[in-house]
Amino acid sequence: MQRVNMIMAESPGLITICLLGYLLSAECTVFLDHENANKILNRPKRYNSGKLEEFVQGNLERECMEEKCSFEEAREVFENTERTTEFWKQYVDGDQCESNPCLNGGSCKDDINSYECWCPFGFEGKNCELDVTCNIKNGRCEQFCKNSADNKVVCSCTEGYRLAENQKSCEPAVPFPCGRVSVSQTSKLTRAETVFPDVDYVNSTEAETILDNITQSTQSFNDFTRVVGGEDAKPGQFPWQVVLNGKVDAFCGGSIVNEKWIVTAAHCVETGVKITVVAGEHNIEETEHTEQKRNVIRIIPHHNYNAAINKYNHDIALLELDEPLVLNSYVTPICIADKEYTNIFLKFGSGYVSGWGRVFHKGRSALVLQYLRVPLVDRATCLRSTKFTIYNNMFCAGFHEGGRDSCQGDSGGPHVTEVEGTSFLTGIISWGEECAMKGKYGIYTKVSRYVNWIKEKTKLT
């Protein structure tokens, strides 16, 4: 034993070699072989497995989906700052455009905790909710729209109204504003409101030439003092309507412009014939205590009207009353817009006519005020429907199939267009061939041609 100890002390290297040989010859039971080890760690190889990531292109799944990435790591994937920024906006807080917040056709661009709407022409605001041009839906104005110097929408209202708090709607500024039905039992019968379409306001006024200088022999019209197929109006439903009495009662109609003036057809009036105007009328054979009678003290036909040349060209006249009318729910003026808007309103496509005229061709006159909704007829169809001249200051309205029309005794009465609950004068009943005849239409004086003249002559002093 002493000898062994001496050998170990003198030859430590020998001992180490012996131990190493023993270990190498022993069977290893701690580690699995290569094949079995792979069965336990069965993990798919990654895209760049075996390579240094710093030297390969980034992978979106590896960089940002398996674990949260930084902007720089995302930049490695896209290799483009702009594309990385677009991805980053949604990656950080989701897609803010998912709810489609942009209105009126706006395009949404996502941002971090926010979004941006790219608005089409005519709109602005956070969600493109603000109209900035009158060309689109009248700028959301209830009545009139004008573009300011910086191309912003400025709404306005006709006389007797003021802008509401929203700067879009119009509200009454006087007790009985024009064009409004205020009798409670008839307010439910107000005709369907007309909503502004998209309009090209630059070209809204037709490029028409008034044929002022045409000389033409007097034409022989049949029954051209021209509501057939209409309905009984309720008291106060058309408070701007008046009836004219002269040699015979209810020979023509008219509309209240203001307390002192009536507008009617020029062919209705004769110099030297006494005319009485009755406002607030409903049943011409009954006294309903809503009527107001006034005498006409002055007749002003349009300066281009000449019955000797043509009885229905420039067929418009103004009547001055001896005493002002007292405005109330049964006696209310009709609204008159400017030339541009009167023309736009007419193009809405349908209007209402009213009167006490004959209820059928050569038949009896109506006792109760009649009204009828009539569609506008395109000019080409209008011209083809008659052998008589249709001037540019006239328009056609009615039904091709016949059966409904204005008729004798309705002449001078109103053709009105309702705009968001307020009625505007767009025409004056003038003439036609018979009444409600198939293929024939009622012919009306186009008020847009005469609004400046009306307003100039009827100013209240």
Rank of each mutant, 00 (worst) to 15 (best):
N5Y: 09
C18F: 13
L19G: 02
G21M: 14
G21I: 13
L24S: 07
E27R: 10
E27I: 02
C28Q: 05
C28R: 03
F31V: 13
E35M: 12
K39D: 09
R46H: 01
E53T: 00
V56D: 01
Q57F: 01
E67A: 03
E67Q: 04
C69T: 00
E73P: 02
R75W: 04
V77I: 14
R83Y: 10
F87K: 02
Y91S: 05
Y91T: 04
V92N: 10
C97W: 02
N100P: 04
P101L: 05
L103F: 07
D110I: 07
C117G: 02
C117R: 02
W118D: 10
G122N: 12
N135L: 12
N135R: 12
I136L: 09
K137H: 13
E142T: 12
E142I: 05
K146Y: 14
N151M: 13
K152P: 09
V153Q: 07
S156Q: 10
R162G: 06
L163Q: 04
K168Y: 14
E171S: 07
E171N: 08
G179H: 01
V183K: 09
T190S: 13
D200C: 05
Y201S: 07
I210N: 06
F238E: 01
V248F: 09
F251N: 07
I256N: 00
I256T: 02
T264D: 00
A266D: 01
T271C: 05
G272Y: 07
V273N: 13
K274Q: 10
T276Q: 09
G280M: 02
G280L: 02
E281H: 12
I284G: 09
H289E: 14
K293E: 10
R294W: 00
I300V: 13
N304S: 14
Y312H: 09
L321P: 00
D322H: 05
D322F: 02
T332L: 11
P333V: 00
C335G: 01
I336F: 05
D338Y: 04
I344R: 13
S350H: 15
G351S: 08
S354N: 09
W356R: 09
R358S: 12
V359G: 15
R364G: 10
S365R: 14
V368I: 13
V368M: 12
V368A: 11
Y371V: 15
K387C: 04
I390G: 08
Y391T: 12
M394Q: 13
A397I: 03
G403C: 07
R404K: 01
C407D: 03
G409Y: 11
V416T: 13
S423G: 09
I429E: 13
G432C: 10
G439E: 07
G439K: 08
K440N: 15
K440H: 15
G442T: 14
G442L: 07
Y444F: 14
T445Y: 05
R449K: 07
Y450H: 03
K455E: 05
K455R: 12
L460F: 10
